[in-house]
Every structure is written in structure tokens, then in C-alpha cells.
Amino acid sequence: MNLKLRIWRQAGPAAAGRLVEYAADHVSPDMSFLEMLDVVNEGLTKKGEEAIAFDSDCREGICGTCSLVINGVPHGPDRGTTACQLHMRRFKDGDSVTIEPWRAAAFPVVKDLIVDRSAFDRIIAAGGYVSVNCGGAPDGNAIPIPKDVADLAMDSAACIGCGACVAACKNASAHLFMSAKISQFALLPQGHPERHRRVTAMIAQADGEGFGSCSNEGECQAVCPKEIPISNIARMTREYVKAALLAK
């Protein structure tokens, strides 16, 4: 099938960008979305033009590197799917496809469709970890954790930090990302020693990075490739209140 692409091209962080039209011809419905872009890029390279820069790594939906807003929806039209796992069979011959990078002040464009998501790394560095003393490996089941709690923590830990939540949010808020990271630790005993410090430090870092605040619309949970719900955000609020009341 043949597609009309409108792709955001931007030479560098300071350069002005614009949407450029490309034709993607002879696209196989079995291709992934990124493979389709690879083929377009091969064509551009053969013509001596600069290839379209986009992020990708594992291409199996688990690393959180791909970051494309496809026809107005981060990661494209499929629920619980990263852009790399989106396949061209989802489109029809003659479709027009607009591809843009994540848009947020805290995610500046590096080039074309690539954005700098190091703000997320700094939020994690502010508190999204547990401190573990070195020594012999503890027994896996030394601390009993109810199965439902472990499952809930695992659901939160499924966050791959892709930033689609920020991209979808009208306020470019990082609350879903932060709340998933805070929840995975708040739910488990291993996360408790630092829980009060963690939530206040991570929220302060996110606010400082220039992410917006949350309007409870839940666009984030609709685009999240790991389908992380905004109940995590409610948990983060509870953690925040607890920290203010109980932190020493």
C-alpha cells in the first residue's frame, strides 16, 4: 500500500522545525511502523537526502525508547502498544499519517523525532530507587508479600519510562510516570525506608524540570503502552500527604 507521510523535521534543538511530506510507497502490511520508516529512510539516503532521525532500541515493546506521536496519539492508534509494535496493517492504502515528536518543555527536541528525555532520569535519580546494603543475597521469600500486593506493585513497575503520558497530557504532566515509580516502591516493604523522602524529592524534581500538573483527564492511562492506570496518581497523592504529615 501507499501512504502519505507528514513528518516533523528539525535540524537541531535550536533550529526551527516544520512538517515535511514524504511518500511511502509499496508498504507491506506486515511491516512494523518503524520498519516502514526504515524503508523511507533508505530511499532518502539513496537520493542523498538526510535520513529522518527517530529513536528506537529493542523494537519489541519493552524498552520505552520509541517516541512517536502518530496521527495525534502518542504511540499511535493501538491500545497498550508502543510505536514499534504498531503494524502497518492498522493503516489503509492512501492514508495520510502525521508523525511528530513528544511535545513538552521538559522534553526538548534533539533532532527531528528524537527528544531528550533525561528529565525522567533526573526524577529517578531524585528518589526512584531503593538503597540496599551490600552483603549476602537475601532469601527471595524472606519478606512475605501478599500476592495481590506483589501483582499491583508489578503492574506499576511495568512502566518503561517512554514518556507517552507526558506527550498525551494537555499539561505535559509527568504525574503518571512518577506515580508508577513511587507506587512500585510504596507498595513493597523494601521501598518503605525511603518512602517519605522519595515522594517529596521526585515531585520537587518533576516540578523543577518544567512538567505541568495533573487535570485528572486520564489521557495518560489511555496511551500508556503498559496500561498503567491513574489510580497510581491517587496513590502518589496519598504518599505525598503521608510524607508531609509523618516525615521526620
Binding site: N71, G72, V73, A104, A105, N171, G210, G212, G218, E219
Partner: peptide, 28 residues
């Protein structure tokens, strides 16, 4: 006003993501 500055460059195309989003005309 603060949220406006969190996204200085708007999307050329932005669509509602659909269920389970709670976005409505009222919320927007």
C-alpha cells in the same frame, strides 16, 4: 498559566486517546 508553558510548541495534530481516558468536552 503554568501548564501552558509546559508545552510551548503545540502539536500539529492531536486527538483524544479514547477509553479509558476521562477526557470530555467538560474536562477540556
Amino acid at each position: 498559566l503554568a501548564n501552558q508553558s509546559a508545552r510551548p510548541v503545540p502539536y500539529a495534530m492531536k486527538k483524544p486517546a479514547g477509553t479509558p481516558s476521562r477526557k470530555t468536552l467538560a474536562s477540556s
